[in-house]
Structure formats: C-alpha cells, structure tokens
Design a protein around this nucleic acid. Sequence first.
DNA 1: AATGAATGAGAGTTCATTCAT
DNA 2: CATGAATGAACTCTCATTCAT
Lengths: 189, 189, 189, 189
Amino acid sequence: METATREKDFKIQKRKRILFSALELFATQGYDGTSVSQIAKAAGISKGLTYVYFESKEDLLLQIINYFKAEEEIRLASLYDDDPNIFLKRLIHDFFNRIRERPEHIKLVTSLMLQVSKYKFIQEMAIDKYLTYFQLMQELLDKVGFPDSRREAKLLTAMLDGVAIQFNVVGEDYPLTETEKYILTKYVS
Amino acid sequence: METATREKDFKIQKRKRILFSALELFATQGYDGTSVSQIAKAAGISKGLTYVYFESKEDLLLQIINYFKAEEEIRLASLYDDDPNIFLKRLIHDFFNRIRERPEHIKLVTSLMLQVSKYKFIQEMAIDKYLTYFQLMQELLDKVGFPDSRREAKLLTAMLDGVAIQFNVVGEDYPLTETEKYILTKYVS
Amino acid sequence: METATREKDFKIQKRKRILFSALELFATQGYDGTSVSQIAKAAGISKGLTYVYFESKEDLLLQIINYFKAEEEIRLASLYDDDPNIFLKRLIHDFFNRIRERPEHIKLVTSLMLQVSKYKFIQEMAIDKYLTYFQLMQELLDKVGFPDSRREAKLLTAMLDGVAIQFNVVGEDYPLTETEKYILTKYVS
Amino acid sequence: METATREKDFKIQKRKRILFSALELFATQGYDGTSVSQIAKAAGISKGLTYVYFESKEDLLLQIINYFKAEEEIRLASLYDDDPNIFLKRLIHDFFNRIRERPEHIKLVTSLMLQVSKYKFIQEMAIDKYLTYFQLMQELLDKVGFPDSRREAKLLTAMLDGVAIQFNVVGEDYPLTETEKYILTKYVS
DNA sequence: AATGAATGAGAGTTCATTCAT
DNA sequence: CATGAATGAACTCTCATTCAT
C-alpha cells in the first residue's frame, strides 16, 4: 500500500512537472513556438514519455487550461468575504500577487486570449473568464455603491489586464505595488 | 529615369503587398502558425521571390514592426494639437478607431508584447511603444491639470491595452463606442 | 509436482492466448499494422509479459507459423483415408471449411506468402506448404486415375488459393458451397 | 517552349520514378512495412520532395491503383478480338506475360486484395477488378460454348489468381509456360 | 511472475531556405 | 525579375523493447 501510494504520488508529481514545464514554455515562446522536445527536456524526461501522460500537445494545453480553471475556482472561494469592500480589495490584491508570483500564468492566459480562434476550448475559456470576472466586479462595485457599476467594472477589468501586459513588457521596473495601491484608493473605500 | 522610377515604385508596391499579407496572416494565425508559402500565395507571388524582398521570415516580422513604428509616428503627428484636451481626446478616439478598423494590427502588436523574449527587437519595440505612450499621456494629463498624472497615465494606458484584449475575446458584442465615451468623460473635459 | 504441472499448464495456456490474439490481429490488420500493446491488451496481459513468452514481435510471427505447421500436420493426419477418392474429397472439403470457419488463418497465410522476402522463415514456410500440398494432390490424383496428374495438381492447388483470395474480396456473397461442389464433381468421382 | 516541355517531361519522369519505387517496395514489403524514406531513397530524392509530387503516403498508394486501372483499361482494349476464342486466348496469355514481366504489379494487387478493409478505395478496386474479369470470362466462355460458364469462369479466374501466388512463392522454378499451355488446352479450342 | 514507466529510434509530414533555370 | 523544385532539419507522434519495482 505504502509503495503503491508513493508510486502514485511520484506519477502525479511527474505529470505536474511536465505540465508546468509546458506552461512555462508556452507562456514565454507561445504554443506554436514550443516543441514537445523542449517540454520533455525541461521536464527532464524523454520525448516519448510525454505521450504517456498526455494524449497530444493540444491535450497538454487543454489540461493546463483545466488546471487554471480549477485553481481559479479555489482561489476565488478563498477570497470571498461577506463585506463587498473586503472582497473587492482581496480580488484586486490577489490579481497583483499572481502577477508577482506566477507571471507565466497570467502571461499565458493573456496570450491565449489573443489566439482565441485556434481551438474552441480556448475561446470558451476566454469568454468564460471574461464574463465571470466582469459580473463579479460589477456586482461588487454595485454593492459598494459605485455609480455606473457596469461601465466601471468594464474599465476595472480592462485595467487589470492592461497592467498584466505592461508588467510583462517592462518587467521588474514596473511599479506593481504602487499601481495596486492607487487602484485600491480609487475603487475601495 | 522615368522607367526606373516607375519600376522602383512597382518594387515598393510589391514589397508592401508581401508585408501586408504577412501582417494579416501573422495576426490571425500567429507568427509560428504562418508559413512563408502562405504569405507568398496571399501576396500573389512565388515563395522564392519573398526572399528577394526580405531576408528571412524573421526579417519580415522585423519589417512589420518597423512599419508599425513609422506609421505610428505619422499618426501621432497628425493627431497633434496645441490644446492638450483636444490632443488627448484625439489620441483616445484614434485608439478606438484602430481597434474598429484594423483589429489585426492591434492584435498582432499586443500578442507580440507577450512574447517579448523570443526576439530582441520585439522587446525593444514593446518597451519603446510603452514608454512613448506613457510619457505622452502623462504630459497631457499634466497639462490638463490632472492630479497624480504619472499614476493616472499608467492606468489610462493599461485600460486601453485591456480594452483591446477584451474586444478580441468577445468581438462584436463589446461596446466599443460606449466605453470610449465613458473613458473620455473621465479624462477629457 | 502437481502444482508444478498445473502451473506449467497455466503457462502454456497463457502462451496460447497471446499467440491467438496476435494471430487474429495480424490477420485483420497486418503484421506491421499491429502493435505489441494491442496484442497484449487483447490477450489480457501487460506489454512486458509478452516478452517473457516471446523473444520479439518477429518471434511471435515465427511461432504463429510454427503453430500453423503443427496444426496442419494434425489436420492432414486426421483427414487421411486409404481410399484416395475419400481422402481427396476430405482435403477439398476441409479447405472450404477452413475458409468458412477460420478465414483469418487463411488470410494471414495467404498474405504472408506474398511478402516472402521480408523474413527467411516466411519463405521457407511458404515453399514448404506449397510443395507439401502439391505433392499430396498429385499423388492422390494419380491414384484416382487422373491423366496428367502433375499439371492437374498444379491447377487444383492454384484454384483453391484463388478461391481464398476471392472470398476475401467479396465476402459473404461468394458462393463457397456451390464452388466446392463444382470442384468436387470435377476431381472426385 | 522546348525547354518548358523538357522540364515538364522531367517532372513527369520524376513522378513516375517515385511511383514505381513505391510500387516495387509496397509489393515486396507491404504498404505498412515500407517507409516514405525508403521510397525516396529508392527514387534517388529527398524525403521532403515526395510530398511535392504526392499528398501523402496513402495518396501514393491511391495513385498506384489509379495507374493500374488506367493501364488495365488500355491493355484490355488492345487484347480485344471479335472471335471469343482468340480474345480468351489473348487474355490468358496476357495474364501470364504480366506475371513474367511485371511480377511486382501482380503481387501488389493480389496482396492489396487481402487488405481490403484498410482503405475504401482498395476495396472498391478489388471488387471492381474481380467483377470485371469474372463477367468478361463468363461471357467469353459462354460464347465459346462452354457449359456452366458461370461456375467455370469462377474457377478460371481463381486459378489465375492462384498461379500468381504460387509463382510468387517458388519464383523461377514455377513452370509458367507449361501451366499457361495447359490452361489454354482446357479452355480454348 | 508481472507490470507499465521509460527510452530512443524512426514513422509521416511540414517548412524555411536555396538555387538552377 | 521570377519561379518552384529541391533539400534537410525539425515537427508531432508511435512503438518495439527494456528494466526497476
């Protein structure tokens, strides 16, 4: 039993290693610009083994997106608070935190949104993500008493996406903390 | 002389046809997802001739970026006005207009910004573009009398980038005109 | 001892399961078109275990051929009769019966005969089979009093091979029983 | 003009070289057992060039079959004679001649008939060929005054297919000429 | 005895680039 | 000037075989 469990853990661990290697490379070089060989090498395995854990390169991308979805759900739940002000504040703070800690994740998701047409599941993910965040933001801005919450939610979400892009361009020079604070002062009391 | 000039024009014309074909295809299918054959066919010439006008596929991308730069300079000059309010208004309006009329251009530039590491000239272009717009916006907001112009310029440029992404995701459903007006009411008096 | 015997039987049984799975798949998909994984799955065992019972995929094919040879010997013995007329009749009837009941066997053997050059043991098997049947038929036709038994044996064996091919092409529409009777009327009194 | 024609000829020539290389290899090693690299090497070209002349490996097989069909039509037309005895005689003689001169053709067609299920166009070809020859033979045997022409046509066509297989097995030792004569004495007066 | 993770070679295919014409 | 035949490297993916467990 012990051994079996350890082995299973090992397998899951390896799956994750491949997944994250792919994630990192897709984010920096693009999906088409990344070869399965590169992914395998980055994960420290042979090319062929990749296909034991994932059906195809496309499947790898799909699984990454699924991972993002699942992770997001958990994250959103953990951020929830009855007080809309606190919830909103946390949402914004969390977004900046992810840019800091997992810039590849944000980069990949953002660039996938620009290649919306290639695979249907990308388009679905993109629209889903867009709608989820937009509705959540509008609701919160509404509760907080913001006038014209619909338009404002649109601006706020766009702003965050834009910050992600700009951070990606200028890197460490971008004043993440300062910008975060400034946005908070505008939207959270 | 006459003939030589006409021939030269002809050559420039053909160069442009190749360049625009590539631009269109890169924007819709991605750089890696587009083959030189496709570009040549779209431009109505042979594969081999492409290499008379451009050194390589990478060079083609570089020249597209150069074209963007040059075009931007001209556009910015044409939008200039002594009155910062009018200049700012025109800048924002022009941005939305380009999203409407040349969505591929915006899409290509935005997605290139996310693959900053692949080629050095992409990174340079991205930083250059970012700094240019940021400084211009800050200056104008300053003149207009906006408090905290630096932070505000950051938000405004991020907002515009974000709008471009979101339009790419939801397409025709995105309320471009409404958003444009809303932004104008906030930043232009 | 008892246990050892039962275990040995068990082993032989498993060997047969692998062999027959391979036989079936080789016949329907071809040797090159069948993977060792498929064979293992069809036999209900793991890929690795296949290599405990057989040295290689090629060896598997060789053992199938050996199985055919052994089975044929037994079959021929069981069909034997002192009366050449009865023996001949049985031989022909048995051939048609095998087409009906084990079309895969016939198909595999026939198609292997056409790829004579790939492995030496295929060529040997093919020639051996050809000679065996030809000599037997000639002998029987001779005893039955057929003039020009040599040439006639050649035709008869060719005829049977041809029937196998044609049945494979048209399938159920092929009039096996009718053809069998017709051949019998020509060669058996 | 001259040059263009010569070039076109050259291209057709090269296409044929690839086609015949593939034909030869498919016949001796089977379709699955032959790689595109092998075909290219046999044709004296690079692997990639194969795909300029043929869409895929499958297309190569399809074109071979089309070539067979076209060639057969021409051959049949050239063999025709108003006298059924002469026509029949020529048909049989031509079959033996092809075995002698183009054994790979016969071998490939025969082995394809055994892999009828893999691609639809193979099945169509096989059934078409079978029906064409069967009907033609029956008609001729009928005109010649053979009793039970239907059954007899079946035997005759099967016989010829069988001869092809047996020649493939024993090669030069097979008495083609003798067998041909013997068949002729039985079916042609 | 039995598994299936792991490898590496090779499959079919595409494509940037060159070059003879 | 212009073509597209030709190449070779790299692509995604498969599979026979091995081996630690």
